[in-house]
Design a protein around this nucleic acid. Structure first.
Length: 266
DNA sequence: CCCGATGTTCGATT
DNA sequence: AAATCGAACATCGG
């Protein structure tokens, strides 16, 4: 579910976590921790002050004392700060007790998401490519790196080791705006500057609207994103393209449902 | 009721 | 090597 704008929305909504202290951890789903056991996390998490909270790609980073607690929401993760545990705890997979008598709760309907514990941020950085908000991500960077790739553009934009943060919704939106067909070979793309501008402007715009809620995306206290009304192609099968009025098609690209205007996108 | 699809990622198989 | 598929899960809609 959550792509970069949704993850940024969550990070922003959790800014109040800064300087709070974690005193305990409980889980009800063994696989909620990826690279350690819940038992181990419980042992090492106590008495940690949250120094900062940030994001790289779709990963949420809690900066602790000499370690990093990293959360990935995958499809249906919901991470929020609350004064009391939810009454309906059906999808609560784990939670952290804070010394402020609050809880950092993690819910996840499909149980795909969870937490990593890293000693060093390098461990995270080697998992992903460049973040679109990294100052090294420029038109020049994109130009240079696209020119080396013989694969199809949608597949490449979805590859988190290339650029991290784009997912199925924003990739379709960006390619529609740039008038590029998702199967276009990356190195043959001519209007790289336009593509770059559309990546940045689409993400910026969605963040302003707190991301896109299709079904499950939530942040803070049950808030939802409002960017869905701004979508040009994603989820608009058979509706008219805003530019040319021809029907939006749904096709399969890189194994993912993909929305295009076959008239506008070549 | 059953089948297919869902915003992600990883690993196995062509 | 690159592309495709299934699996990890639960829910919803046709």
């Amino acid at each position: 579910m959550p792509e970069l704008p949704e993850v940024q929305t969550v990070v922003t909504s959790l800014s109040k976590l800064k300087n709070k202290e974690i005193i305990d951890f409980s889980s009800s789903w063994e696989k909620v921790t990826y690279n350690c056991t819940p038992t181990n996390l419980k042992k090492v998490i106590k008495d940690n002050i949250i120094q900062d909270i940030s994001r790289i790609g779709k990963y949420i980073i809690l900066h602790l004392n000499n370690k990093y607690l990293i959360c990935h929401l995958r499809m249906t993760g919901y991470l929020y700060l609350t004064k009391s545990l939810p009454v309906n705890n059906k999808h609560v997979r784990c939670y952290f007790n804070l010394s402020s008598n609050e809880f950092l709760v993690y819910e996840d309907i499909r149980k795909f998401g969870g937490f990593y514990l890293f000693k060093n941020l390098f461990e995270l950085k080697q998992k992903v490519g460049i973040d679109p908000y990294n100052k090294k991500f420029t038109t020049q960077w994109l130009q240079k790196n696209l020119s080396r790739k013989s694969g199809m553009i949608k597949h490449l934009l979805l590859n988190q080791k290339f650029i991290c943060g784009l997912g199925n919704i924003y990739t379709d939106e960006i390619l529609w705006k740039t008038r590029i067909h998702p199967n276009h070979i990356a190195r043959n793309i001519k209007n790289t500057d336009f593509l770059y501008q559309n990546i940045i402007s689409t993400l910026n715009e969605s963040i302003k609207f707190h991301g896109t809620t299709i079904m499950n995306f939530k942040f803070d206290n049950m808030k939802t994103g409002n960017y869905k009304t701004k979508l040009k192609v994603y989820g608009r099968k058979n509706l008219p393209c805003e530019r040319c009025k021809k029907k939006i098609l749904k096709i399969k690209v890189a194994g993912r449902g993909t929305y295009i205007c076959s008239h506008c996108q070549k």
